[in-house]
Amino acid sequence: MNTPDGHWDVFVKGLWKENPVFVAVLGMCPTLAVTNTAINSLAMGAATLFVLFFSSLLVSLLRKVIAKQVRITTYIVIIATFVSLVDMLLAALVPDIHKELGAFIALIVVNCVILGRQEAFAASNRVGPALLDAAGMGVGFSMALLMIGVVRELLGNGSLFDIPVFGSSFEPWIVMILPPGGFFTLGFLLLIFNTVARRRATRSSIVTKA
């Protein structure tokens, strides 16, 4: 994992090979709950990226100071701090989006992707790689959210970023912006992802964790 030369790999693996949503299937709750429009997905992705980036920075800086026995508690305190900050910032700067996302911003705390990266990477790596890893995972997560959000908004509302795309003759599939649409979209995207990944590489075995 510790690749001082292959910094680019550290970043890129989060985008595809170890994508937190499509490969590891982590952080399902925000992935499905707030992706009914592209804008909400983007906001959630950005908030998660922010929290992941700064948590990794702090955890990596403090990795020699944090005692092993209380590390999880410490990580959670750090993560919760940044989530509270992002919650306040969104409420102050973009109150409409904050209202749409509601309690799901606070729920970033229990997004396993973030705690997972602290434990698996930031805690045992220097600041540089840790930040690259966080950025890669965060961008990979945001990309996945945006993909789901785009599909759901296009089909469910006939628009993209609130701009009508299909014209008035299109009858929106309302179910796509309702909860079942979240399950269906992710289900089908996973199907596509699995198919592509399988064709690309029969050599690598895909580990699906719950």
Binding site: L62, V65, A67, V77, I78, A80, T81
Partner: peptide, 15 residues
């Protein structure tokens, strides 16, 4: 252990 948690708490509170 207490120092670790205290440190984390200190930064958390400050931020």
């Amino acid at each position: 252990l207490v120092a670790t948690l205290g440190l984390a708490g200190f930064f958390a509170g400050l931020l």
